[in-house]
Design a protein around this nucleic acid. Structure first.
Lengths: 184, 184
DNA sequence: TGCATATGAATGAACG
DNA sequence: CGTTCATTCATATGCA
């Protein structure tokens, strides 16, 4: 399919069981995917925590350039990182909600304890406004981060039963980083 | 891990129990989103490489019908495939492919992509002619060969050079396909 | 050593 | 059409 990408991670055509690929030949084709350094991750995380969710092309460029100081990195890595990070946060949240519902539905256990401890990890501190130094970002690119999914999908094709996306900013507990993100 | 319960088989009509278990049948049928077989991808890619970018409804229909030979597929899948493939090829150029390694030097003129190609990128004019050509492609045994010929008939010619991507380049090396695009 | 999990990468689907 | 979302695939990593 797409010729793109650095190496050649064949995305097996599946069908006939995707089992095919797995294991065995760890030979030759090594996809050598980007492996972020701790500094890079810290920076990216900080940016994310600060409210950046969908960096613009320019921002991606700049971030990438900056991060390249800490190690090899490409713009697409930054792009994917934010894409994944955002998606997974959403996913986790959804999963949690689901779990709650699941518990209720199954009535398995009359009280849902775990939700508390888990909620702790993702504790919603508050609308935690972005760090000062980040204000250099173009305002418009921030817009969506706050109220991004209030949309409802009602489509001709796929009627996805996405459930409630009663989201909003929930911030991961912010560690006292010394990072200054002013380079952007 | 993720339970596969997320995929719903919402095909108009019957809805199987969501239990699904996502087991792929012999034909690789799987509830949820379309998962193209390698043959399907090969054909689609070949068509794309041949210059087809925005197939008409008719063409989509035909392509879909043909591809259904290799596995479950719907017209919309073909439609989406072309849209995505086209969009991503561009996106790759415009966003993810910048390599910030040693491209510190921004020569404005030297590497300036011809305004020509840029104009092409944003051109929204007439649909591809290639389709016509492909349609008329006879069911000869000659088959595959170089689709370069076809390209000549098409107008979509904007295979501009890569920007700064150095590390992650691949080539549209046309594999010895035995594809027959004749069905169109 | 083998599985479980985290995450980079890719892509089908869909929105605006 | 450009973007964004959701899901999946593949691999690196951690753990028992």
């Amino acid at each position: 399919m797409d010729e793109g990408m650095s190496g050649f991670c064949m995305r097996s055509g599946s069908v006939r069981g995707k089992s095919g690929s797995t294991t065995s030949s760890a030979t030759g084709t090594k996809c050598g995917r980007w492996n972020p350094t701790t500094e890079q991750v810290k920076l990216l995380t900080e940016l994310f925590r600060s409210g950046l969710r969908t960096p613009s092309t320019d921002q991606i460029q700049k971030i990438s350039t900056q991060l390249s100081f800490y190690g090899k990195i490409e713009s697409k890595n930054v792009f994917y990182w934010f894409q994944n990070h955002k998606a997974r946060e959403r996913q986790k949240r959804r999963k949690l909600s689901f779990d709650d519902k699941d518990v209720v539905i199954r009535r398995q256990n009359s009280f849902n304890i775990s939700s508390q401890s888990l909620a702790d990890m993702y504790r919603v501190s508050e609308p935690d406004r972005v760090i000062e130094t980040l204000q250099l970002f173009p305002i418009n690119s921030f817009g969506e981060s706050e109220a991004e999914n209030l949309r409802l999908h009602g489509n001709e094709y796929r009627d996805s039963s996405r459930m409630f996306s009663c989201t909003m900013d929930e911030e991961i507990e912010h560690p006292p980083l010394e990072l200054r993100l002013s380079f952007l």
